[in-house]
Design a protein around this nucleic acid. Sequence first.
DNA 1: CTGAAAGCGCTTACAG
DNA 2: CTGAAAGCGCTTACAG
Lengths: 327, 327
Amino acid sequence: MATLDDVRRRARVSAGTVSNVLNDKPLVSEATRQRVWAAIEEVGYYPNRIAQDLARGKTQTLGVLVPSLSNPYFAEVVETLEAEADAEKYELMLALSRGQPRRGVRHLERFTSRWVDGVIVMGGAAPTADVLALAKSGKPVVLSGWGPESTGPDIARVEIDLRQAGEVATQLLLDRGHRRIAAILELPVQQTRLDGYRATLERASVRVPSKYLQRGDSSFTGGLRAMNALLALPTPPSAVFAGNDAMALGAMQAAYAAGKKIPGDLAVVGVDDVAEAGRAHPTLTTVRIPKHELAEMMIRLILGLIEKKASPEQHVLTPELIPRESA
Amino acid sequence: MATLDDVRRRARVSAGTVSNVLNDKPLVSEATRQRVWAAIEEVGYYPNRIAQDLARGKTQTLGVLVPSLSNPYFAEVVETLEAEADAEKYELMLALSRGQPRRGVRHLERFTSRWVDGVIVMGGAAPTADVLALAKSGKPVVLSGWGPESTGPDIARVEIDLRQAGEVATQLLLDRGHRRIAAILELPVQQTRLDGYRATLERASVRVPSKYLQRGDSSFTGGLRAMNALLALPTPPSAVFAGNDAMALGAMQAAYAAGKKIPGDLAVVGVDDVAEAGRAHPTLTTVRIPKHELAEMMIRLILGLIEKKASPEQHVLTPELIPRESA
DNA sequence: CTGAAAGCGCTTACAG
DNA sequence: CTGAAAGCGCTTACAG
């Protein structure tokens, strides 16, 4: 690989001048600028980013830590993050915690020693304490999907109003005439959805047995198992609110296997609006999380922290009910 | 951030000695080794990877370029790539071409100037010529999902025998008694699947009208549209082989909307075995691509090229028929 | 076994 | 407008 030194010799100028040309600094005469560019072409020079990074103390790189990619929710968000970062000339280091927050911590450390300019962490992919410590050390950090856990005002976050998601989903079910409304949720991550669900039932003076709250692990299988438990109850529910689409789809599968018609025998509402929701049979009524907007906002915040030294902002986006066939 | 210099001063040794301790070089006395480690702890030192990279000429980083992540196929493969790379202490730079090979070229260039140790490119995310040029320049490169396009023997590749996928899918349909067997394929990417389909029909002396070959773009919507075209034919097919699961699912949707029963009125077979295939109604019969094995093999090959200077190998993995309800 | 020096390939004040 | 020098934070021979 050609280096700056090759260019310098060829153009018969100093290294500093080559650098100035490369970085479009104004203080170079047109003549030498041309000569340097010609030399760059001739030797086929590409700046070495590692050396630039070291000299500049900046890497134009963002670290992204998410729990997994097999969950289409994260895959879609990461896809948009990449697009937005690319547009701003940033590159992405991708790391997955795959269910182990300790693995997330290790990745955070690697990000730090690699001098990423900023770090985006989603869905509790690392322990809160470690993330906060990183932010306190001065590294720009943006969080999303952190559940109800308080992180204080000193860290940038963009969240979805999931309590509202629980409310509109439950309200829809009430409006459809249901009273035996169950919930399948992953706790504590989906605690706010539970709050919305409970508040809405209470407001309507509807009481449900405690067994109507089933826990899942946000996976298809988790939803399926939880639904089977609900169906085994002496008085099964006529409707179910699932904390995400994967579990809602699993619940539909279980109901289908038990010979139940949807939405006739059982109404189902999910949260997320993944692609599969619109294709299921019946199509899944859900509360859409604005993933694109979410990713955009995260990039906006992290760049603000990096480039403008803005102070950390916290944003809350509003989810949207998507009525389809399942409820 | 503490630097090596802080450690050096604290431990009253030379920088070289600190480096030797850090990198477990044998030639350090136990006493100084202890002193240095103590100093490292005390100042909270973390090596700066950028500086290490520059000095070593190696980054422990792999560049991964794929077309997209919203396609669960790539999301799943990337997930495994990350896991395997992580186990070998490599990190991932992720880049997406999002349908624009020229964007892929730009990412390849960035990878190069960032000194990634190796590059993995999937699904034609960059033009073949650029990828080959990169490999020729000495950079370790592994390809996958490159379609029938010849790349010569000088580049590492791991492919799936997709011709065989076309064969087993078509054979299954024949075995089920079908003769009016259509195909929905994205060309030229899925050319080998088409070859397998054609060869199998020919072997069975089954002839189908040319309209039975419909093109799709590997998306759900593409499959849906193609199926609608097939259904509008004077003599619609009784079975369809789709080039991937997304299109197969789309075809099922179209058939469903047209009031057709699956597999009674129409049998459907896909390729990939994405998670959704097992959950669809009816569940989708498909030819599974061993994604996990594929990712493992790619990492194995790229590390061989990087660390052992192995010569480029080309592997072909065998797909597996997964019979389910749709055919 | 340890230290001093050169080098990785850039950028950034600072003279001139 | 241009060059020489120092610096970014490490590693790697090479003396001793």
